[in-house]
């Protein structure tokens, strides 16, 4: 930033024009019906949601309400039955390295070493840069495990390695489907911290699916609560807690307020889901 004479356009950026933010997600009238000729499971029904570039959004909802379905449509794995998903104005028509995914169950390639896993993305795209995988692994606290196979790592380490694999590919958007739900409380806390650290530094959009209300509020800018199946947006909660948020934030009144609000909506929907199920049996 040597050129101080130029007029600044944004308070955060000096001397350079602000780069265009990327990673905005626009879900428009999204409907997904599984098995349209047979049982017709309407998983998502006419859902609308806008996620801003570089925003951290948590998606909450009762089990089976269609959260993963929404994510799979954004990732490009599933074709919407109706409506569409736009990313930076372009219609999603298939998977893309700009939209990275972390799965609930660890999906590192078991037949590749940790380093090979991390270098897979770059290898498929612009080529592997010497030493980059190593530095990402170092950052994730995985130095010394480059040549290990995923099966030789603990659950927390596997999840960090999967995050490392994603970061090595430098995606605009990170789609995460209950990434920490299988981890113990302590490991989970460490992972949450890592994730926020990475997100704040690299300016990526994050869609984070979780069952855990506290996790959602602790991490996200906005918490989107979905209705029971067929999924729609039930409520959107703006999380106006200052960042960085340390773990003690959960004891504040504001946090409690937000949590109660989210919980009451979810309870209502979970109850409805239960009645729905009983009705179907």
């Amino acid at each position: 930033m040597s050129n101080q004479t130029q007029t600044t356009r944004e308070p955060t950026m000096e001397g350079e024009p602000t780069p265009e933010k990327t990673g905005a997600i626009d879900i428009e009238n999204l409907t997904k019906v599984y098995d349209p000729e047979g049982e017709r499971v309407v998983a998502v029904d006419d859902m609308d949601l806008q996620i801003g570039a570089e925003e951290f959004v948590a998606l909450l909802g009762p089990s089976g309400c269609g959260k993963s379905t929404v994510m799979n449509c954004i990732a490009g794995y599933l074709e919407p039955t109706e409506g569409e998903v736009l990313v930076d104005g372009n219609r999603v028509s298939g998977p893309d390295p700009k939209r990275g995914v972390v799965f609930q169950d660890n999906r590192l390639f078991p037949w590749k070493t940790i380093q090979e896993n991390v270098e897979f993305g770059p290898q498929m795209n612009d080529g592997v840069e010497e030493g980059r995988a190593r530095s990402i692994l170092d950052e994730m606290g995985l130095d010394g495990f480059e040549d290990a196979y995923p099966s030789g790592l603990s659950g927390g380490m596997q999840q960090r390695a999967e995050l490392a694999r994603l970061l090595a590919n430098d995606p605009d958007i990170m789609l995460m489907d209950e990434p920490f739900s299988a981890l113990d409380a302590l490991t989970k806390e460490i992972m949450q911290k890592k994730l926020i650290e990475v997100w704040e530094r690299d300016n990526r959009t994050v869609l984070f699916i979780t069952h855990d209300v506290e996790e959602a509020i602790l991490l996200a800018d906005r918490v989107v609560v979905m209705t029971a199946r067929p999924g729609q947006v039930k409520d959107v909660i703006d999380v106006d807690l200052d960042r960085p948020r340390d773990p003690e934030v959960v004891t504040t009144d504001r946090f409690t307020e937000l949590r109660e609000r989210a919980l009451s909506v979810i309870r209502e929907e979970a109850q409805r889901a239960l009645e729905q199920e009983e009705g179907e049996v």
């Binding site: 990732a75 490009g76 794995y77 298939g94 998977p95 893309d96 390295p97 939209r99 990275g100 995914v101 799965f103 169950d105 999906r107 390639f109 590749k112 897979f120 993305g121 498929m124 795209n125 694999r165 590919n169």
Partner: peptide, 21 residues
């Protein structure tokens, strides 16, 4: 497991590369 292929595709693998890797 379909999520392995999906992971590969989201990392930028084409269909031949998905086959191979």
């Amino acid at each position: 497991e379909v999520e392995f292929s999906r992971a590969a595709q989201s990392l930028g693998a084409g269909s031949f590369q998905t086959f191979r890797h």
